[in-house]
């Protein structure tokens, strides 16, 4: 009798194991704070569809996202920039093959105080301002007001894009204020009349005013068709080609529904 009960128990356990879908389990996402709002929305909606999948999300920056893939501490590493050759070397040395997936586009817009009359700057003017060559707004057609240059911390992904696309690797003046987050920058620019800063398009609100660059306003259309000069793709990196639940998640993210969530998160869908 005891034996039969034990056998039944084993049978039931095995049946339960077989019945549970192959996709169940945990998915770990780490990395860029720019990708975080997208990942958050998509993860929430994905978990509603697949209650058996647990997704854990954390920020920490693009470098950390790629590091997590290299160290194997995450299934997906978010990055707001492409992988560096140094990082590829580090990864291949450990037998890891990082695969990039372009999941959204981001556009970085220069912003000023809402009362600033200036509405357009060229990339050269932006560079001159961040080099400290233009120090007063009247030099670019604004009021007689000192320019307060606000930049992001040198380790942020947004700064890296700005440095590459606007500064062309020249150095931002040391007297530029630095702010540790997009939100902090909005706060600082919104309360300082002479301020100029730059943020991801998704963080734009009514407290601050976005400038057009080379007469092209930063919008989803101009970013997708490549006219807007300060834009970048956002990536998710995986170790090797995706399979199993990582593939399922990525497909969902790149589906129409997923890309709609990308738009809701303030970034620009890839199609």
């Amino acid at each position: 009798m005891k034996k039969t009960i034990a056998l039944i128990c084993v049978a039931v356990c095995m049946a339960a194991m077989a019945a549970s879908p192959a996709l169940a389990g945990e998915l770990v996402l780490k990395g860029s704070t720019t990708v975080l709002p997208i990942a958050q929305r998509v993860a929430e909606s994905y978990m509603k569809l697949h209650p058996d999948v647990k997704i854990s999300l954390s920020g920490g920056g693009s470098s950390n996202g790629i590091k997590a893939i290299v160290d194997g501490t995450a299934d997906i590493g978010n990055a707001s920039r492409f992988i560096k050759s140094k990082e590829i070397k580090l990864a291949t040395a450990k037998g890891i093959y990082p695969v990039p997936h372009r999941i959204a586009l981001d556009c970085i817009v220069p912003v000023v105080h809402s009362k600033n009359p200036v509405s357009d700057l060229t990339t050269e003017q932006l560079k001159a301002i961040y080099l400290g060559k233009i120090r007063n707004w009247k030099e670019v057609g604004g009021a007689d007001l000192r320019v307060v240059v606000i930049s992001r911390d040198t380790s942020s992904g947004t700064f890296e894009v700005w440095e590459k696309l606007v500064m062309k690797k020249a150095r931002v003046i040391p007297s530029a204020l630095t702010v540790p987050s997009n939100g902090g920058l909005v706060q600082a620019v919104g309360t300082t009349p002479g301020a100029i800063g730059y943020i991801a398009l998704g963080y734009l609100n009514d407290d601050i005013k976005a400038l057009s660059v080379n007469r092209v306003p930063g919008t989803p259309e101009t970013t997708r068709n490549g006219l807007y000069p300060i834009s970048r793709p956002l990536f998710m990196f995986t170790n090797g080609w995706i399979k199993g639940r990582t593939a399922d998640f990525m497909n969902y993210l790149l589906s129409k529904k997923g890309q709609q969530l990308v738009e809701e998160a303030g970034s620009i869908p890839v199609y």
Binding site: S63, K67, E87, D153
Partner: peptide, 13 residues
């Protein structure tokens, strides 16, 4: 505090 999170492990930074 602002830079440590993004400085690659073991780098000069």
């Amino acid at each position: 505090a602002a830079e440590m999170a993004e400085a690659p492990f073991g780098s000069e930074h």
